[in-house]
Design a protein around this nucleic acid. Structure first.
Lengths: 111, 111
DNA sequence: ATAGTTCATCGTATATTTGCGATGAACTAA
DNA sequence: TTAGTTCATCGCAAATATACGATGAACTAT
């Protein structure tokens, strides 16, 4: 959107974390990732059979996961194999871990 | 939206994780959380001074963080103090940790 | 060549998110 | 009472997200 008058510039870390979080912000994408993560190896469009959603919709979700870098695909005609991008997955894991670890454990008098 | 014909029912965990991820899906909310997390104690609407955004916009972001349970507020007239909800924060941390830990580390032949 | 399979992309409709200014509620200070 | 402060909420506009069916690209099999 970016209609903010004073251009707010975020750090790379802030952008990155928000970007990954956005990719995780829909339950069906969580499910897809869990399915892919559970496989010893790759997975394919059996997703279409498992998940009761239009094929185009699933393809769209896969695209957003791809763009977030959380998964990767390999065209394997006539199919396409998708799997977790282990490297990025690990990075994401660390980013979240660091983020959640940043809060001081000392309580506050709120609430 | 929910225009899916076959009602897709997600698990509680899927919904919960997606819900928290949604709250983290905007860089300004990441920044707000980092600010709150960095304080030894609570924080207030100095956010409005630190972050170059309309007061109403910040208030809206705070609301979504509240609804996600990640922060809590205490009315302290004429101000309002916000702080991290340590309990929910810890829960979120564990949920993400578990989620990211679920992927088998064995590589795949994709990509 | 013809038909079938698998998948991405386009176009469309609707819902949600994001941002702002304006207003009002709640309280304090004078 | 009258101002002033702090914050939430409303109403609006624009951008994104979500879902679908339809179509097309790429490849296989016959």
């Amino acid at each position: 959107m970016q209609r903010t008058l004073t251009t707010l510039d975020y750090t790379v870390g802030e952008e990155a974390l928000a970007s990954i979080a956005k990719a995780l912000a829909h339950p069906v994408r969580i499910r897809i990732l869990k399915l892919l993560a559970g496989e010893t190896c790759c997975f394919t469009g059996e997703l279409t059979e498992i998940i009761p959603m239009a094929q185009s919709t699933i393809s769209q979700h896969l695209k957003s996961l791809l763009e977030a870098g959380l998964i990767q695909g390999e065209i394997n005609p006539p199919k396409v194999k998708y799997c977790i991008n282990r490297e990025r997955w690990q990075m994401a894991r660390e980013q979240f871990s660091e983020f959640f670890g940043s809060a001081s454990t000392s309580g506050c008098d709120c609430g």
